[in-house]
Structure formats: structure tokens, C-alpha cells
Design a protein around this nucleic acid. Structure first.
Lengths: 254, 254
DNA sequence: CGTTAAGTTGAAGGCGCTCAACCGACGTGG
DNA sequence: CCACGTCGGTTGAGCGCCTTCAACTTAACG
């Protein structure tokens, strides 16, 4: 029962009982994997999409000098759609033990063509792209301390959207190496940053459980604006700028 | 005549005369804009896609502290597809003077549903996503010198795909500020890096014209592997790894 | 010839990387 | 029950890349 998936979809559409049933009984190959096992590789062309049921995975690339980059996190309820001719250097890896569903193109097509589910899926895809852009900004511009805070903010929101956040607390089954690889920073430095976030009473993190203690302060430090995650459709932009300044007339850096 | 667009598409599909005519006569609102003018803003919801004809544009975000991030470059022949509920903090800006075509959703649908053009478009979209991932890696892991080299390599390939590279030379109408904003680095440092690339006889760059003097050496410095740009469909991955190492058994950093 | 945008250069300082070593939890097998 | 191995987390010293914040030069354009 991919309830996390259902939870996310239902944030953006009203489902009938039949719709819910369709989701709950999605056909596909169910897999249970251990941390570190590959879900699919670049050369894999079985054309199947990944629906995370439980546990976390990541889309990884390897740099020529043997480092690993995690360019995308797959949380429970996330759907990674198959794309023909995907970048062959990309692979999907389990970051914790967990289970997932491999969906055939036909199954995905059924969802995509569904009058209610289809648009909701579109939405999820758009959000995923926005996350990608936001990561660029976070990694490119934020200092490590803020960078870690930013990712934690994002995780909290995404877990909440999947119905997996309770009392500002959710599971975070990643190893610190994974966080470091996702944030393009060094393991020791990530550790420092986490310590500091803990000692400043912004988060709690032990036993793979993350608690956002002071969300407002954390978001301020992270320069986190959840606009890109588009929590609800009704939160769409209304802030229309009256004048459009030419781009190079904007101020830079303070 | 969006010939750059046509050139790119034809790399991946055989077009009939009628197909070419369809592309050449694409209906849409033609605009000619100056550097710095906005093409569309986050709150803009006219649902139109951008087809670059001439000149370069960029997708920009602004950080809370007033910096600008260029998260995507639009070169001549690039199509930026409209997405409902796109990240509202994203806007499209001209980075040089140039012209473009605004396409209605209906027009885009005609292209997408076309039996030959449709798949080619899919292809372009996939490549754009790969570029995005690659930027994450480039910005996250490469040092400035290599980082600049990497972007220049990418530009050369993309311009070549659009038929706009001759004798390893193409137009690069960006200001250095733009390059810096796209690479998430400081303007002075970008300048240094460019100087060095010039002095090492790897590139030539003046009068907005870029020449790759020593591509092999440049690509080596940049750790550039054009796999993610998927120049030709036939270049698809065949390198199947025989053993799949569990992920945390891989070596890190050397 | 004046003005503005774009490119170039320099000094100083700190953030984050490198490269370790150590600790602690957990599971396994003797 | 304890010894041991492994994985993951923690901590520290030193250094170098890159940023910051300027000033200045050159180019573009009226």
C-alpha cells in the first residue's frame, strides 16, 4: 500500500474511492532492498519507473575521480519516472533498507492519462524539477551551515507532504556520508554543522530520527522559502511585480 | 526561421520536407529584446513556451540576499517548455540582445504529438535535465578553474549541435557577470580563470567570440565527459557493468 | 568628449578541505 | 559471554582556495 504516494497526490486533488483503490492496488514488481544496493544503473533500460514505498533512495553520479554525487533524494511516496535515454552516468541506489515498486511504462501511462491522477502527477514532476533548481542555489550559494539547514527544512516539508511528519518529527535514515554527498560537502564539515544545529537547539537528530525544534529560526538560517515546494495549489503566486527592472540594474550582494 | 532549432532536432530524427516546413513556419509571437529584459516572470502565467531564435537567455532565481543565480542557459535553438505551476521564483531573462518566439500551448502540442518531431523533442527535454544534473556536479565538486572549463566545453558542444560552431569557434555573447552567476562563483575569480585558460592556450575569447583551441586538454582539465549531452542516439550506453558494487563499498576521493 | 557598462587587478582574511586518528555501537562467531 | 571486525560518527591541526571589497582601466555609445 503506497500510502505515502497517495497522501502526496491527495494534497493536490480530490480522489474518489475508485481512484484510491487504483493507487492502492498498483501492479508492479515489489522489491525489498538493503542500503547500498542498486535499483537501476545507467545501462539498465528496462523502462521501469521507481515508486518508493518505504525507505530512502538516491540518484547518484560518480565523478571521474571516484567521488559520489547524490543529485536527487527519493523519499517514501516519491515517483522517479523512467525517461528514455536518461543520462547513462546516473544510477539509483538505496540509501537505507526499504521497499519499492517497479512500475511498467503501461502502468505509468494509466496514471498519467487518468483525469484526476494525471494532473497531480504532473504537479509532482514540476515540484521535483523545482527542487533540482533549488539545490543548485543551495549548493552554489549557501555556506555549509545554512546549506545543511536548508536540506533539513526541505526534508521536513517533503515528509510532511507524504504524511510522514508528526510533531515536527520524522525518520531520517541517511548516513552522514549520504547527506554530505547530497550537499556536496565534506563529511567532517557536515558533522560540525549538524553538531552546531543541535547545540543551538534548532534540531534534534539521533537514532535516525529528525525533529525540527525551532522551525522559524532554522528556516531563517537556511534562507529557506518553501515556495518552490508548492505545498498547496492555492498558494500560487499572486505577487505581481509592478515594474520589471532590467536585470543588470539589480543590486548584487547586499 | 528557427534554423538552430531545426538543426538540433535533425540530429536525432530524419525529417521530411513537410516537417521542415512546419518548423520553419511555426506560428508564434516573435520578440526582439535587449540584454537584461525579462521574457517572463514567476507570476507570469500566459502559458507560453520560449523558443530562442537568436541571442542567449537564462533562467534566473534571486537569493534572499539579492544575489542572482542563473540555473539554466537558453541558447539559440533551445526550447523552454511552459509548465503549469512552475517555481514562481524562476524568471527568464535575456542575457544578450536577441530574438525569440513565444509559442502557445496549442503549438507546442502540435510539435509534441508529431510522430517524428515529438520524440526528438522528448530527447531535447531529457538532455536539458541531464545538463541540470551535470551543473550540480560541476558546481558542487569542481574547483573554479575546472568549473569554467567545463561550462565552456558544454557550450561548445551545444552550439555545435545547433549548427553554430565553426572551426571550433562560436559566439559567446554573455557578460562575465553572467558566467559567474551561472557558475556560482565570484566575478574576479571567473576573470582569473578565464585569463589562465587563455594564457595556457586552451581557449581564445574576445569580442564575444569563443574559440576552443585545444579541446582535448580543455576537456581533461574540466573532467568533461559529453555523455550527458548525448550527442547522437547511436552513442547510447553499451558499457554494462558486470558486477554492481554495493554503494558504500566504493572508494571515496582518490 | 562625457558617461556608463564591462573587464581587470590586488591585498587580506576566513571558510572549508585534506588527512588523519579515535570512538562507539552493533553484530558475529568462537 | 567475550573478542573482534566493521560501519558510522566524532574530533583536530594545517593549509590553500576563494571570497570580500576595493580601485582602476578599458570599451561602448551618445
Amino acid at each position: 500500500m503506497p500510502s505515502a504516494f497517495l497522501n502526496k497526490l491527495e494534497r493536490w486533488a480530490d480522489f474518489s474511492h475508485a481512484d484510491r483503490l487504483l493507487i492502492a492496488q498498483l501492479p508492479g514488481e515489489a522489491l525489498t532492498l538493503q542500503r547500498g544496493e542498486q535499483i537501476l544503473t545507467g545501462s539498465d533500460d528496462t523502462r521501469r519507473s521507481i515508486l518508493m514505498l518505504d525507505g530512502w533512495a538516491g540518484l547518484c553520479k560518480d565523478t571521474p575521480d571516484g567521488e559520489r554525487v547524490i543529485s536527487e533524494l527519493l523519499l517514501p511516496g516519491d515517483l522517479h519516472k523512467y525517461r528514455r535515454h536518461r543520462d547513462p552516468s546516473l544510477r539509483a541506489t538505496m540509501l537505507s533498507t526499504g521497499s519499492l515498486l517497479l512500475l511498467s511504462p503501461a502502468t505509468v501511462a494509466i496514471l498519467a492519462d487518468h483525469p484526476v491522477i494525471g494532473p497531480a502527477l504532473e504537479w509532482l514532476t514540476t515540484v521535483q524539477q523545482s527542487i533540482h533548481s533549488e539545490w543548485l542555489v543551495n549548493i552554489g550559494r549557501n555556506k555549509v551551515y545554512a546549506r545543511v539547514a536548508h536540506l533539513l527544512c526541505e526534508i521536513a516539508v517533503r515528509m510532511n507532504n507524504a504524511g510522514l511528519l508528526e510533531d515536527e518529527t520524522c525518520i531520517l535514515p541517511l548516513a552522514q556520508v549520504d547527506l554530505a554527498d547530497a550537499l556536496s560537502m565534506t563529511l567532517p564539515h557536515l558533522n560540525i554543522a549538524l553538531q552546531r544545529l543541535r547545540s543551538e537547539n534548532l534540531i534534534r537528530l539521533d537514532q535516525k530520527k529528525l525533529t525540527i525544534v525551532d522551525r522559524l529560526r532554522l528556516e531563517a538560517i537556511a534562507r529557506f522559502d518553501d515556495g518552490y515546494l508548492m505545498r498547496w495549489p492555492t498558494e500560487l503566486p499572486d505577487r505581481r511585480t509592478t515594474t520589471l527592472p532590467r536585470d543588470h540594474e539589480r543590486r548584487r550582494r547586499g
